[in-house]
Design a protein around this nucleic acid. Structure first.
Length: 536
RNA sequence: GGGCCCGUAGCUUAGCACGGUAGAGCGCUCGGCUCUUAACCGAGUGGUCGCGGGUUCAAAUCCCGCCGGGCCCGCCA
């Protein structure tokens, strides 16, 4: 039986069967801060291109910023004053954060910053620039000439009926600057006649009538025509896109007919994917219900975000729950161990898939030696026990716990420190209560669940702690001795200690915990838990 | 009105294109590490594969129909 290939490799098999040279396009609307789901487009485009090249084909990956689109809602936290720009193209709207020349530039930079961190080698193109520099010009002219044909296609494929004078071009209104509200009804040569009279819900036309020269780049093609024009202009052969475009009668269905019948070119091979949801709900820029790559990079490395996408088939639903990040991270760490042969999986298929998912998730080539791992969930405990832990102390602990199996390099140490920072941010911003190490407010309340023997042990332990500062291993031995002296099974002593401190039966290694808390404070907790029952 | 995806152990899921004894991880339980405690190791535990039909010697897998969950298109991109 043949080993099942990773879905990406299977996809590349099918595209290489068609031809050996490819242009892989992707595109994103610049409607605000991107969310992690928007990364799928350039991520897949890049990975496909890399794999085609690896197999001896030719491929380039593109990412187009759809920056001529009209603003149709102002996403939080951008102030409501920006409602006055509704209907205008993103390139003409000021930057809400005032650091860039325009809205488009700001959010494009933000997006490119994320693709760079993810190591995505995608060629950046701007829609607005392509309208200005003539890239789209031949296709705009053709679309105007064959507008009747396009109207027929829209009606037949998507059931959208347009008036008989409708043209697939949206000029920017010279008077009010809006692009979403203009209606182009006639043209002579490159001059398009329009009236700014449309009411599109989020914006209303100003009533101005004018004309616009398509060579000036002050306008855009209607989306489904634009998409087809982009394929034609850039010779796109492959494009990943979200399933909203893939529905029957949706934009892919329509654009593929337009590109064939109107532009006389072939549509790209699609790779459709399901959207990423957050906490079981759809991410929506306009509702502000998003998780951004920037937020991701505060709590986890870029490789893990890539892994999130590559580990499952793109058509599967993916739900990101930030409180479950540690389990995603441990899956990633496991894939890393499998990749480097430190862990063996009995099923060769699973093993191959884990390796390949790991490999695809790297930024650049994977290193020769496995990085020293600090499991995310362990990091979460460490940062809570030792909020300001030094590198020396960290290495000492990791040596004790067996995580360090070779001399750490500078890169290893950087990764470990980054991991601690990530874990610490995660704890502060997103951790569920269960992951937090929290001391009891009133340890005396716990006394009624403790046995007399457990209370005696806590008192003895408190006395021990008062004696002097102990070495952690020494203290650990003392705790075992103490339990035996009282004929108390050691685990009952430890349970009592955790109950007294946090109201739970287990916790991080007790002696470390005590060292982090400070012994005086621990003594107070132990005594309170052990004594108050008699008085109350 | 139309389309897509998902439903497999308490949880997360692999397997489904090409039918052949349901497989992991987490959790849980127990044990080990002459002393263990949110770190390490081992074992055990656990599934009417959403439901009902059909095809077949044989169905988680193929076909039809339902149910439940989610998303999308039909307005704009």
């Amino acid at each position: 039986m043949q080993v099942k290939e990773h879905w990406l490799d299977e996809f590349v098999n099918t595209v290489l069967d068609r031809f050996k040279e490819h242009v892989v396009a992707s595109g994103t609307s610049i409607s605000g801060s991107a969310h992690i789901g928007n990364i799928a487009d350039p991520l897949f485009a890049h990975a496909i291109a890399v794999e085609i090249r690896r197999r001896g084909g030719k491929a380039v990956a593109l990412w187009v910023a759809d920056d001529m689109d009209p603003l149709d809602s102002v996403p939080p936290p951008i102030p409501r004053e920006f409602n006055r720009y509704l209907g205008m193209p993103y390139v003409d709207i000021p930057d809400p954060y005032k650091c860039c020349r325009s809205w488009a530039e700001h959010f494009t930079r933000e997006f490119l910053d994320a693709t760079e961190k993810l190591g995505l080698d995608v060629k950046y193109l701007s829609g607005a620039v392509m309208y200005r520099d003539g890239t789209y010009l031949p296709w705009i002219r053709m679309a105007l000439e064959k507008a009747g044909n396009i109207r027929t296609i829209l009606l037949r494929v998507s059931g959208t009926s347009k008036p008989s004078d409708w043209l697939p071009y949206m000029p920017v209104c010279e008077n009010c600057g809006k692009i979403g509200t203009t209606y182009a009804y006639d043209f002579q040569g490159d001059k398009v006649l329009y009236e700014c009279t449309m009411d599109v819900g989020y914006a209303k036309g100003c009533g101005y009538r004018g004309e616009c020269d398509v060579k000036d780049g002050r306008g855009k093609l209607q989306w489904r025509v634009e998409w087809a024009a982009r394929w034609a202009a850039l010779n796109v052969t492959i494009e990943p896109f979200g399933k909203e475009h893939a529905a029957a009668g949706g934009s892919y269905d329509t654009s593929k007919v337009i590109v064939k019948d109107v532009f006389n070119k072939e549509p790209p091979i699609p790779l459709t994917y399901e959207h990423v949801m957050i906490n079981g709900k759809k991410m929506s820029k306009s509702r502000g219900n998003i998780f951004t790559p920037q937020q991701w990079f505060e709590i986890a490395p870029p490789q893990a975000l890539k892994f999130f996408f590559f580990r499952v088939h793109p058509m599967r639903h993916k739900d990101f729950r930030v409180e479950d990040l540690p389990s995603l991270m441990s899956e990633y760490e496991r894939a890393e161990r499998i990749y480097y042969g430190f862990e063996v999986v009995s099923d060769p298929k699973l093993m191959a898939l884990a390796k390949r998912s790991y490999e695809l998730s790297q930024v650049g080539e994977p290193g020769n030696v496995m990085p020293i791992q600090l499991p995310y969930d362990f990091a979460v405990v460490l940062v809570q026990l030792y909020p300001n832990i030094s590198v020396e102390r960290l290495l000492e602990i990791l040596r004790l716990t067996g995580h360090i199996w070779r001399e750490p390099t500078k890169e290893d140490i950087d990764r470990l420190v980054t991991r601690l920072n990530h874990a610490s941010t995660w704890i502060k911003k997103y951790a569920p209560e269960g992951a937090k190490i929290k001391l009891l407010e009133d340890p005396s309340l716990i006394s009624n669940v403790l046995s007399d023997n457990q209370k005696r042990a806590l008192i003895k332990a408190a006395e021990l702690l008062l004696e002097r500062e102990w070495d952690v291993n020494e203290l650990n031995n003392k705790f075992f001795e103490l339990s035996r002296t009282l004929s108390l099974p050691p685990h009952e002593f430890f349970e009592a200690a955790y109950l007294a401190l946090m109201g739970k039966k287990s916790g991080p290694r007790l002696v470390n915990f005590i060292a982090a808390m400070g012994r005086e404070k621990v003594v107070r907790y132990f005594l309170a838990a052990a004594t108050s029952a008699k008085s109350g």
